[in-house]
Computed example of a mutant assay.
Amino acid sequence: MAFNAAQYEATSQKLTAGIQTLSTKLNEVGPKAESTANHWYVPDFVAKALIWAANKVIEAASWVLNKIKELLEGIAAPVYLAMHVWDWQSDIRGKATGVAGSTTADQLESLKHWTGDAATSYTTAVKAQPIAAAKIGTSADKVATGLALCATAGLAFYVAVGVILAQYIVTMIAAIAALGSVVFSWAGAAVIVGDTSVSAGLIITAVTALLALLGAQAQQMAAIEGEARDMTAYPHGHWPVAAP
């Protein structure tokens, strides 16, 4: 799965709409349970089960709603990461590899017309330049790859959150319908609470998977930083001097 701007936009819109829908459904739980419990023909033990279940549903749904809102604070990250992939590939890697290719001994135009000791010394002096430039190109490619993976993972994560949210809304609708039913029991209350609590685990699983991938990319970034400090390509941590 590659990053897709259209899919990102659609996912963002669905999440925004889903949060509004879930918030609306959450506000319906309490009144629905109280309305049913207050009917004269509803036994006391059923009324207690209704109110208990409603409170638990509100508790679980509030956690899910607040957690998804919190996660949405970073929803812009995937698109920014995807934009920077182009910067690293085109502006940095492309230019660096261009320099590397044009400064090798067989590509230097001057050597086609220039011979002798001076030409030999010049060739020796500049031979470190393409190596250093190529190293930048390699590192830039790795950065771009890491950014692309993170952007794709971020999009996949929000798609997963969107699916969880959509399923949760369906569960909430069913829970509200059950709370409005006169055929109710403590067993039914437990089922409702269980159904509305499942999404919490799914969200935690999705977050854990995303963090694992981002952690691996952080290690890759550390390795790239090490390459930037490579004394072989950059003597004493600096760009190689072309002439003594």
Rank of each mutant, 00 (worst) to 15 (best):
S139V: 15
I68Y: 10
A49R: 12
N55I: 00
A47M: 10
A223R: 03
W40F: 04
A160Y: 07
V126L: 15
T138H: 11
Y122Q: 01
A134V: 03
G154Y: 10
G116P: 05
V79R: 06
A132P: 04
V159R: 11
R93S: 15
A33C: 05
L81Y: 11
A243N: 00
A190E: 02
A242E: 15
F45M: 02
K25C: 02
W86S: 08
K142M: 09
A177M: 06
T36N: 02
D230Y: 01
Y41F: 12
W239C: 02
A61F: 00
P240H: 00
T138E: 15
K56D: 10
A228L: 10
A77L: 06
I75V: 05
F45Q: 00
K67G: 01
K48C: 02
A228M: 09
M221F: 13
A187D: 00
S181Y: 11
K95H: 02
A82D: 09
V99N: 05
A222R: 03
A151K: 03
A47W: 05
G154T: 09
Q217F: 03
Q89C: 08
A119T: 03
H39C: 02
I136D: 09
G74Q: 12
V29G: 13
A218M: 14
Y41I: 08
A10R: 01
G30W: 13
Y122P: 07
G18N: 08
L165G: 13
A61W: 01
V161F: 06
K25I: 03
A140N: 14
K32C: 11
Y168K: 04
T36L: 10
K127Y: 05
S121H: 14
G201C: 07
A77Q: 01
L210A: 10
E227D: 13
M1I: 03
A178F: 04
D141F: 12
V64D: 12
A174K: 13
T36S: 12
A49N: 03
N66K: 08
Q219C: 07
W40E: 11
L81I: 04
M1S: 10
G101M: 14
I203P: 06
I204Y: 08
G162Q: 00
Y158S: 13
D117N: 09
Q107E: 10
T196M: 01
A10F: 07
A140D: 08
L72M: 09
A100Q: 11
H84Q: 14
V79P: 01
K14T: 04
W52E: 07
K25H: 05
F45K: 05
G18L: 09
Q89R: 07
V163M: 13
E225V: 12
L165I: 07
A2Q: 11
A119W: 12
K14G: 03
W186Y: 14
A148F: 05
G201L: 15
E227A: 06
P244C: 04
G201N: 00
G194E: 09
